[in-house]
Each structure stands twice: as C-alpha cells, then as structure tokens.
C-alpha cells in the first residue's frame, strides 16, 4: 500500500449520449484495477453510478470501456498503468449507443455477429462419420488463432470503419466468421462467405489494425479479415459467390 497517500482524479462519463463528465478524487491504491476503482466510487461516493461487469477475471468481456481515450477491459487494467498525470478519463465504448453512464447498448454489436453468421451450423443431415481434426491441421490452427474472442467490443469501439459505416460488420463478427469458415464440421461456408461480403463486409476493412492494437487477448482480427477477403476473392473467381 505504498501509494495509498497518492490520489487520482477520475473523470467519469455520467448520463446518456448528451451527458458529461463528473470528477471524483479517490486514493490511488496499489494493484487496484479500473473496475475496483469504479466499485470503490459506487460504494463510497455515488451509488447511482452505472457500469457493467460480471466475471472480474477477464473471461466475460462485459466490463470494457474507454480508458484515457482507449478501449480496454477494466477488470484486467491496473489503474497505475493507465493513469496519466494522476488523472483518468472513463467513458462508455464509442461506436455504440450509451444507455447510462459507462453502460452501452451492445445489441447492434451482437446483431452483427448474427448477420455475419457467427453461429456454428452443423447441417441437417445425421452425422455418420466424425471429422478428425488434428491440432496441427492448418485450418484448425487458423481457427485457433481467432477463437478466443470474449466479445468485449474493444475492437469494435476502436475501429475507424465502424465509426464511418453503420453497416460494417466490425472486426469481432468478421473474426468469428473466419474461425467458423475454418471449421470443417460447419455446413454453411459459402452462405457465411456471402454474408461477410455484402455492403458492410470484410472488403471494407482499412487494415489500420486498431482492432489488433486494442484486443485485450492479442487476437488479430485484421489477419482474420484478410483471410476472409482472400477466400471471398477465390470464391468469386471460381464462380461460387
């Protein structure tokens, strides 16, 4: 507790889209996470503060918000690492409608997962033979690279294409589609490829890699999207799309 005497000024977004910042001065506690700090504010200063969390251990992806201008998962972000000039600025994730304070409406984000067919489709026929998938199978390895997404929305909030195009599916949904396209058991590869190649599809990616920079799990949605582009291009040339 060597830093307990130090304090940090936290500017927290309050209200809806038309809200504003309120500042709170709180002690800077060693090894405290941003989520701990918010809980401290809610319990000790203002019980009306709204923010979202569930697991607190970096698994559920529900606590993401904008911390000093960058989307981060707050349960695994230490205050001392994010603080700048003893100040913190906490805002709701950009590119999503604000519900209240630090809570955003994730409906569009998850709708786009469905639009990108981000759901495993095993097909209607009865499985008569199992598909052996070895750990070193090339497609399995590609799926492995993309599969650990926790739906936190950091990439979606950081993406400049999402900011400029309402219909862009976004890095998370496209990354999910890529992991399924590399699953040999899945039965709707062409349909999914078509779903991610429409007006808001993979070809809109600017390859700025903000999603890569902001993914708390160090996934590479830009690479997944590049894979989708390549698959879609080959499908067009083969007359399948």
């Amino acid at each position: 507790m060597e830093n307990q005497q130090e304090s940090v000024t936290v500017f927290v977004w309050r209200g809806g889209e038309g809200g504003g910042f309120e500042s709170y001065t709180v002690p800077l506690v060693a090894e405290q996470t941003i989520l701990d700090l918010l809980t401290s504010i809610q319990r000790n200063i203002d019980p009306s503060l709204s923010y979202r969390f569930a697991c607190r251990v970096g698994m559920c992806g529900s606590c993401a918000m904008q911390v000093n201008g960058k989307p981060r998962w707050t349960c695994r972000t230490l205050v001392r690492k994010a603080v700048h000039n003893n100040e913190l600025r906490l805002e709701p994730l950009p590119n999503l409608p604000v519900v209240k304070d630090l809570v955003v409406d994730m409906e569009t984000f998850f709708d786009k997962w469905q639009d990108a067919k981000g759901r495993f489709e095993p097909g209607d026929s009865v499985v008569r033979e199992f598909s052996p998938i070895k750990p070193d199978d090339p497609e399995r390895m590609l799926a492995d690279e993309a599969i650990e997404c926790i739906n936190c929305g950091c990439c979606y909030a950081a993406c400049d294409v999402v900011a400029s195009s309402d219909d862009y599916l976004g890095p998370a949904a496209l990354n999910r589609a890529w992991s399924l396209i590399n699953d040999v058991r899945d039965d709707i590869h062409t349909e999914r490829l078509r779903a991610v190649s429409g007006d808001g599809g993979c070809q809109n990616c600017h390859t700025n890699s903000q999603c890569v920079a902001r993914c708390p799990l160090q996934l590479n949605p830009t690479k997944s999207i590049a894979g989708l582009k390549k698959k879609a291009a080959l499908a067009i040339l083969k007359g399948k799309l």
Partner: peptide, 15 residues
Amino acid sequence: MKNSFAIKLWLVQRL
C-alpha cells in the same frame, strides 16, 4: 446487403 456486388467491386479494384 446480401449480394456480392460490393466484394466484386473490391476484387475488380484490387485486380
């Protein structure tokens, strides 16, 4: 949009 017009334009632009 469900058609593949956009990706075809993208491919033409790449080529």
